[in-house]
Computed example of a mutant assay.
Amino acid sequence: MKVTWDIFCTVVDNYGDIGVTWRLARQLAAEHNLAVRLWVDDLGAFVRLCPSAAAAAPMQWQQGVEVRQWPAQWPAEAVGQVVIGAFACQLPHGLEQAMAAQPAPPLWLNLDYLSAEPWVEGCHGLPSPQANGLRKMFFFPGFTERTGGLLREASLLARREAFDAEARNGFLLALGVEVEAGARLISLFAYENPQLGSWLDALAVDPCPTHLLVPHGRILGDLGHWLGEAQLAVGAVHRRGALTVQVLPFVSQDDYDRLLWCCDFNAVRGEDSFVRAQWAGAPLLWHIYIQEENAHWEKLEAFLALYRQGLSEAAGHALTGLWRAWNMDRPMAEAWQALQPHWQEISAHARHWRAAQAAQPDLATKLVQFYRNSL
């Protein structure tokens, strides 16, 4: 009998929560021979990432995973041997009682948000005793050996390596993208940002032509304001100076990976696309999820302190300046121009960082090992 894992996801905002849990569920089922049930409270968001799914189905099978509609109350069925509450979500009513009633209570894990902050290493794997006698364990993804690692399928880097120029051209043509010779290809997936205009102004006058690919999302309002267009249709192409802007449809996770592989620079947001851009091995710009009282700045600085190790002082300063400008509402033009002399160095650094992260066990593997050690 396969071991059953129940993963619970509340879609709070955007697609980061469901993006992470859907990738994790697929990998646990495909690579670790587990029976995985993914419980989602907003199947409409799930369909955006998995177009073959049905938004109204209370139960369906997708890519080896049993996807279930989040129940108002836990149904009368067996609890899995592992229960994961993603990102501190509240479990369905009655589930904790069902867990406590088991002869051998399941391993209860809180899969937390990704962070490079130093305190994460000390909290990873710690228990939190509950009033009902259960123990909830904290599991932190991260970038160091003493954390839970990053999501990475076993075949990911091999597929990335096999994605050659011919595959790249075919993928872009299927999206209706034709890039002029010598143009730099950039992807942009971000939250609303008032500094978008200053960055686009810089790209428009840059000596190097740029083709900017913008998947459908929240940044389109700011992009339309800069272009003077109230509505930006998918597939529309706009040109201003050296800059070509093209709006893409919202694509599946696998196609988004390929889009990142195609590009010379990737501006990403949140958690899921942030990690996938690192596996793409190209320079990137992270738009971190905004928190009250700018608490997200500490997380940004913690990652920058880690990521810039190995860069020259000048390149590290330029990269840090760009990320701070994008996330702290500062003009982007000067920061973008300051990065250009270091392009080759930051490109090589992105590949070195990918290799260093790939040398560590991935998140799914560490979760499975954590479960085995708990038996």
Score class of each variant (00 low, 15 high):
residue 8 F to I: 00
residue 9 C to I: 11
residue 10 T to F: 03
residue 11 V to W: 00
residue 12 V to L: 12
residue 12 V to A: 08
residue 12 V to G: 01
residue 13 D to E: 15
residue 14 N to L: 08
residue 17 D to K: 01
residue 22 W to A: 13
residue 23 R to H: 03
residue 23 R to M: 06
residue 29 A to S: 09
residue 30 A to G: 08
residue 35 A to W: 11
residue 39 W to V: 05
residue 45 A to P: 03
residue 46 F to G: 04
residue 47 V to I: 13
residue 48 R to G: 00
residue 54 A to H: 14
residue 64 G to H: 10
residue 68 R to N: 00
residue 70 W to V: 04
residue 72 A to S: 15
residue 77 E to P: 05
residue 79 V to M: 07
residue 81 Q to K: 10
residue 84 I to L: 11
residue 85 G to Q: 04
residue 87 F to L: 10
residue 90 Q to V: 06
residue 93 H to P: 01
residue 94 G to M: 06
residue 96 E to Q: 09
residue 97 Q to C: 10
residue 100 A to C: 03
residue 102 Q to E: 13
residue 105 P to Y: 05
residue 112 D to Q: 14
residue 114 L to Q: 04
residue 114 L to T: 05
residue 121 E to L: 06
residue 126 L to M: 13
residue 126 L to Y: 09
residue 126 L to K: 13
residue 127 P to R: 15
residue 127 P to A: 06
residue 128 S to H: 15
residue 130 Q to Y: 02
residue 133 G to M: 11
residue 142 G to K: 13
residue 147 T to M: 12
residue 152 R to I: 04
residue 152 R to Y: 03
residue 153 E to Y: 04
residue 156 L to A: 12
residue 156 L to V: 10
residue 157 L to E: 10
residue 157 L to C: 04
residue 167 A to K: 15
residue 170 G to A: 14
residue 170 G to C: 14
residue 177 V to P: 05
residue 181 A to I: 09
residue 186 I to A: 04
residue 189 F to C: 00
residue 194 P to I: 00
residue 198 S to D: 07
residue 199 W to H: 03
residue 205 V to Q: 13
residue 205 V to T: 13
residue 207 P to K: 15
residue 211 H to Y: 01
residue 218 R to W: 10
residue 219 I to L: 14
residue 221 G to W: 10
residue 231 Q to I: 12
residue 231 Q to Y: 15
residue 234 V to A: 06
residue 236 A to W: 13
residue 238 H to K: 12
residue 253 Q to V: 09
residue 254 D to F: 02
residue 260 L to G: 07
residue 260 L to V: 02
residue 264 D to H: 06
residue 268 V to A: 09
residue 275 V to M: 02
residue 286 W to K: 05
residue 289 Y to L: 09
residue 289 Y to A: 08
residue 290 I to Y: 03
residue 294 N to A: 14
residue 295 A to R: 08
residue 302 A to I: 02
residue 302 A to L: 07
residue 304 L to V: 00
residue 308 R to I: 15
residue 310 G to D: 11
residue 312 S to W: 10
residue 314 A to I: 02
residue 316 G to D: 01
residue 317 H to N: 15
residue 320 T to C: 12
residue 321 G to I: 02
residue 325 A to E: 05
residue 326 W to M: 05
residue 332 M to F: 12
residue 333 A to V: 08
residue 337 Q to D: 03
residue 341 P to I: 15
residue 347 S to I: 03
residue 350 A to F: 03
residue 353 W to P: 05
residue 353 W to G: 02
residue 356 A to C: 08
residue 357 Q to N: 13
residue 358 A to Y: 03
residue 363 L to W: 07
residue 366 K to C: 04
residue 370 F to A: 08
residue 371 Y to S: 07
residue 372 R to G: 00
residue 374 S to L: 11
